[in-house]
């Protein structure tokens, strides 16, 4: 019951944090370009404004899919962000919830993609095919980089179990074993692709295909589609921090507050993760082409994750 209450409370928290993280990202991005940048609260204004706008349906679209896709996408992204938060706060563990989280993130990308292609706009169709290629590119190394953690923590696919096994070891996975260090590197290298930021934002490249699958969305649906993306990058950076960098001396040992304190600490440190994996790449790189992006995903992250799987199977 407590776990359910924690999950329910985590949902609005995940929405809030997703928007806040986007604000931090945009501010840092602007500062690195020598601009003042928008206020950190800007995404909240954007979100509220889009919710208050008229929603438009293109006549060539299949309305039911077009309208429901962003809702499902946002819901699954937010859930993917809320589950880790809730399980940290409540300290409960559910078998296989890590698989669920990654599945929800994939679900969210697929739903936005389907919604975009149902708009009947050719740019939406191109965005669909590009997103498909990207999905195949980053899903494999992303999933493979989780395997070593599961092997090292008694074959558990429970999110909380993996986090707690770091407490047991007294150090975080990124520094514990060579295999999990490679896994951490692979996971981090996949985040820009999974979050769809600039070097890998081919499916919604503004100058090439006019925001791709978002082209026909407007008003509340656009707000939800954007929220889905923000929540995905929040969830990914939060996962990266807690799965690989949950250094017990830093995050544990605040016994009076229990799980809540470590959850708050994790949230406080997650922007650093996001800065590293989202803000920096999108500031210092140019957009890749689909082929190049796919080649990147299947070279560096896949090699790293394959290496980590092999090493962990060999017991390192």
């Amino acid at each position: 019951m407590a776990a359910l209450a924690a999950l329910l409370a985590s949902l609005p928290a995940a929405v809030f944090l997703s928007l806040l993280f986007e604000g931090i990202d945009r501010k840092l991005h602007a500062r690195m370009q020598g601009r003042i940048g928008p206020p950190v609260t800007q995404p909240f204004y954007d979100f509220a404004k889009l919710l208050n706008k008229e929603s438009v349906f293109p006549s060539s679209s299949s309305k039911a899919i077009f309208a429901s896709a962003p809702v499902i996408a946002a819901a699954s992204s937010i859930l993917a962000g809320a589950i880790p938060l809730a399980s940290l706060v409540a300290g409960t563990s559910v078998v296989g919830d890590l698989i669920l989280i990654l599945y929800l993130l994939t679900m969210s990308s697929i739903m936005v993609m389907i919604g975009g292609s149902s708009s009947g706009n050719p740019y939406g169709a191109i965005g669909f095919s590009r997103k498909m290629v990207m999905l195949i590119g980053y899903e494999v190394p992303l999933l493979a980089s989780i395997l070593p953690l599961s092997l090292k923590s008694q074959h558990s696919f429970s999110y909380h179990g993996i986090v707690q096994s770091q407490v047991g070891m007294g150090t975080c996975f990124a520094f514990a074993y060579p295999s999990s260090a490679f896994a951490a590197a692979a996971f981090l290298a996949c985040i820009p692709a999974a979050a769809g930021v600039v070097p890998f934002d081919v499916p919604e490249a503004k100058t090439e295909i006019v925001h791709g699958y978002l082209v026909e969305y407007g008003g509340p649906h656009l707000a939800l589609a954007r929220l889905a993306k923000d929540a995905a990058s929040f969830a990914l950076s939060f996962l990266a921090l807690t799965l690989f960098f949950y250094h017990p001396p830093l995050f544990e040992g605040h016994a009076s507050l229990g799980g809540l304190a470590s959850a708050i600490l994790c949230v406080a440190f997650a922007p650093a993760m996001m800065f590293l994996t989202v803000t920096v790449p999108r500031t210092v790189f140019a957009r890749l082409k689909v082929g190049q992006a796919f080649k990147f995903c299947w070279s560096l992250p896949l090699t790293l994750s394959a290496l980590s799987v092999v090493l962990s199977a060999a017991g390192f």
Partner: peptide
């Protein structure tokens, strides 16, 4: 950077729907 309209929330978007 010199005038930076984004500090007022202005973003140049590519689709009239946005």
């Amino acid at each position: 950077p010199r005038y930076d309209a984004e500090r007022l929330g202005c973003v140049l978007v590519g689709s009239p729907r946005h």
